[in-house]
């Protein structure tokens, strides 16, 4: 556990100093929110103010992008040989990856705060109870952790930072065939099945329901189950990949 704390401190310091990546991951949410609300928002009818509808989607899009950057950090570590040094100090793969996941969560929570602040400024008016807020943030955090650890596993698989960047692109694309930006009823029927049931839709519907104070039923639990499944699979896969990659 103390290893993981030291590794988290390391990853946080290094994220803070990676100014280019930091600017991208903070500027992206701002740009996306403005683009969706002011460029596309007028043309999409969701039955509510579009800013209210789209905020959860933008949160997810940014969290996906931010989390998948974990893959790049892991590839960089493998490239420099520092992982060998850690291993020769008898530090396992789990604390090293956990450090990157913690740093990713911190980056993403800052980006999330930024999205909320801007959304409030341009007219987002949620109607959530305090418990609803906590539940929404909990689901979002679970999503960030799951995706960051999945991304760490992808980093162990990738041969270069460019390949790891491909994963970022894939994850950034996933919110589009979901209820993030448009209602799934407006999609072709063959896509609806996927769009309504894929994990990102479950997370988005949970956030939307919880933040707007609507009844959510089982959706947050289904979302959490997805996140837990992805997280556990990724932890197991990354342990195996770490051994294989460093043997």
């Amino acid at each position: 556990m103390s290893d993981a704390l030291i590794m988290s401190g390391r990853a946080l310091r290094m994220s803070r100093r990676n100014v280019d990546a930091l600017i991208t991951s903070l500027a992206l949410p701002v740009m996306l929110l403005l683009i969706f609300v002011y460029f596309f928002g007028g043309a999409i009818d969701t039955g509510t103010r579009y800013v209210t509808y789209v905020v959860p989607g933008v949160l997810l899009l940014c969290a996906g992008f931010g989390s998948s950057n974990t893959a790049i950090a892991v590839v960089e570590d493998l490239k420099t040989g520092i992982i060998d040094r850690f291993r020769s100090l008898d530090i396992g793969g789990a604390p090293i990856l956990a450090g990157h996941v913690v740093a990713s969560a911190a980056r993403n929570l800052i980006a999330t705060a930024l999205v909320f602040a801007l959304a409030f400024a341009i007219g987002f008016r949620p109607d959530a109870t305090l418990a609803g807020w906590f539940a929404a943030l909990g689901v979002l955090l679970a999503f960030i952790l799951a995706l960051s650890w999945l991304s760490a596993a992808v980093g162990l698989l990738a041969k270069s930072p460019e390949a790891a960047g491909g994963f970022t692109f894939f994850v950034s694309f996933l919110p589009y065939p979901s209820s993030a930006f448009v209602k799934t009823e407006d999609m072709p029927s063959w896509l609806q099945g996927f769009a309504e049931n894929q994990p990102i839709s479950q997370v988005i519907e949970s956030l939307r329901g919880l933040l707007l104070g609507q009844p959510v039923g089982w959706t947050p639990w289904i979302a959490l189950a997805w996140c837990a499944g992805i997280l556990l699979t990724s932890v197991a896969a990354s342990a195996w990949l770490f051994r294989r990659r460093t043997a």
Binding site: R10, R13, M14, N18, G81, I82, D84, R85, S88, D90
Partner: peptide, 18 residues
Amino acid sequence: VRRAISLTGQFAAVDEMQ
């Protein structure tokens, strides 16, 4: 063994951003 040794590899294994 790991407690008794240290390894310095071909490429400097230190963090550039620290």
